[in-house]
Each structure stands twice: as C-alpha cells, then as structure tokens.
C-alpha cells in the first residue's frame, strides 16, 4: 500500500515537472519580450537576461516612432484630438470600435436568426438552415477578391446622402479606407447562429407556454425571458467574434491604406518596418499592444477557454 502511494506521488511529481517545463517554454517569449522592452539597444543585442538598467522610456520612444517620429501630445482643451494625433491610440480605438460594432451586429443577427430556427415554424426552415450551414464550407480566400471589388463599388451612406441632396461636391466615396469595410461584411456569423439555435432549443417549452399565457409576444419572450437566460451563449459568441476581429490581418491590409484607418495588427506590422533594427523598440511596441488583451484574457480566461471548448472553433 505504501509503495503504491509512493509510486503515485512520484508520478504526480513527474507530471508537474513536465507540465511546468512546458509552461515555462510557452511563457518564455512573453518574458523575453517584457525584459527586452526595457533594455538599451546594446544590452538587447548582447546576451544577458535581466536588464542592468530599466529603460522605461523605450515605451515612449516606440510610440513616437510609430507616430512617424512625432511625439504624441495631449491637449486638455480638446482631449479627443489625440486620436487624430497619436497613431497608437488611434490603432487601438479602431480595433475596439470595429470590434464593438461587429460584435453588436453578430449578436443581433444571430440571436434573431437563431431564435427563428430554434423556435419558430415557417416554410423552408430546414432548407434555409441547410444553406447557412453550407456557407461554412466557403473558404475566406474565395470571397476575398469579390468582396474587395464590392468595397470599390459601394458608396458610403453619408457621401451618398450629401451627393443626392447637393450638400457636398466631393462626390461619392467608396468603402475603401472606411469603417464600413471593416465592420459590415462581418456582422453575421453562421457559427453564432448555429450556437444560438442550439442554445435556444435547450430552453424548456414550459417557459414559453407560461409567457404566452401572460400574453407575451415572441419578441417580448425573446427579449425578457430568453436573452437573460442566454448569458453563456452571448459571452461565447461575443468573445469569439471579438477575437476574430482582433486577429484579422489579410482583409484590413487590403481595404485600409490610410494610417488613421489601420487596426492594431496592421499598425503593428507597419511599425516593424519603421523601428527597423531597434529591437528594444520593437519589443516595447509589441508589449504595448499585447498588454491590454493579456489583461482582458486573465480577467475573462474562464469564458475564453470554455467558449472555445464548447464551440470548438478557431477565432
């Protein structure tokens, strides 16, 4: 018996050793990035682990380089002007702005469609749902060129209104370099519809019958009974959608070329060229963009991990 317990303890110890070594390998690049971000150029390019002198000013330098060598200046009289003047903040603003609207769009379209497919009865329901599932088979690459062409065809609503009512002589402006191109094509997700349909199907019929007895309509039932119960599905869908927007690279590269319109990923890719061989600035720039999402992840990690495992997709 004692020998058994000893064997078990050694086994547990071994497992911990392997897992800890793996975790250290996984974490190491982050540590290396953080340490590198506060070293001097000379120290960063020679071996040595802990910086002898912690140069916090690297972060400011990185922001300035990202800004085309113009330092960011905060004007108390006009605080929002910093978004036009400071590119790093602008990149973040773009990513968050686009992400929020995409998430809002996806949640709206998917909750409605998911509810219809789960609980409403209408001709062609299975056929339409089948068509939706079929679109999952279409790879992103195939729709890339046509959607890019669409972006050059579509006009922004404000330029259309201005032209139609003769308010401006600037003419029509297409969707290239606008938030529309970054948001609108992504405001529906078959995957989220599928997720909500599955979730809504699990809501007991008794709840619905009770609501009907109280004289509730479907829209009232959806809004005041179903949605409050659907927090897990809402959070999963929102996080996965946001992660997808956050990591998008090919599409924003294609449809934005003005620096003011870049999301953070594209902005950071641009910064790589600007910082050149200044490793410490590269690490500082990477740290600045990594920290916010890392903090968000550590706070919400349970939702992230469970969202991915219940959904089984890549963001």
């Amino acid at each position: 018996m004692n020998r058994d317990r000893l064997r078990k303890q050694i086994g547990t110890l071994l497992i911990h050793a392997v897992l800890a070594a793996g975790a250290a390998l996984v974490l190491f690049p982050f540590v290396w990035m953080l340490l590198g971000s506060v070293k001097s150029y000379n120290e960063a390019t020679t071996a040595g682990f802990i910086p002898r002198e912690w140069l916090w000013s690297n972060y400011l330098d990185a922001v300035t380089v990202m800004n085309g060598s113009v330092p960011c200046q905060f004007d108390a009289a006009n605080p929002l002007a910093i978004l036009n003047q400071c590119l790093l903040l602008r990149y973040f603003f773009n990513t968050v702005f686009v992400g929020l609207f995409v998430v809002l769009g996806v949640l709206t379209t998917s909750v409605l469609a998911g509810y219809a497919f789960a609980r409403l009865n209408f001709p062609g329901r299975n056929l339409l749902f089948g068509i939706l599932l079929m679109t999952l088979m279409i790879p992103f690459e195939l729709t890339l060129v046509p959607n890019f062409v669409f972006m050059t065809w579509f006009s922004t609503p404000e330029s259309w209104l201005a032209t139609t009512f003769g308010l401006s002589k600037e003419g029509l402006h297409n969707w290239i370099n606008t938030y529309y191109a970054l948001i609108v094509p992504f405001t529906a997700s078959v995957f989220s519809i599928f997720l909500f349909r599955q979730f809504f199907r699990g809501i007991p019929n008794e709840l619905f019958d009770a609501a009907l007895l109280d004289g509730a309509t479907h829209s009232q039932f959806l809004w005041s009974v179903v949605l409050p119960l659907s927090k897990p599905a809402l959070v999963t869908s929102a996080l996965l959608t946001f992660l997808g927007t956050w990591n998008a690279l090919m599409w924003p590269l294609l449809v934005t070329n003005a620096p003011q319109m870049r999301p953070i990923q594209v902005g950071l890719a641009q910064f790589i060229g600007e910082a050149g061989t200044q490793v410490q600035l590269l690490m500082a720039g990477a740290t600045l963009t990594v920290l916010p999402i890392m903090i968000l992840y550590l706070i919400l990690q349970r939702w992230f991990v469970e969202g991915i495992s219940s959904a089984g997709i890549r963001g």
């Binding site: 690049p29 982050f30 290396w32 990035m33 590198g36 956050w246 990591n247 690279l249 953070i264 990923q265 950071l268 890719a269 790589i272 590269l282 690490m283 720039g285 990477a286 963009t289 990594v290 999402i293 890392m294």
Partner: peptide, 9 residues
C-alpha cells in the same frame, strides 16, 4: 495574443 506581436518576439 495577436500573431504580429508574438511574431516580433
């Protein structure tokens, strides 16, 4: 973590 940031490292 974003691919670009980790690629830099």
């Amino acid at each position: 973590i974003s691919t670009v940031a980790s690629a830099i490292v």
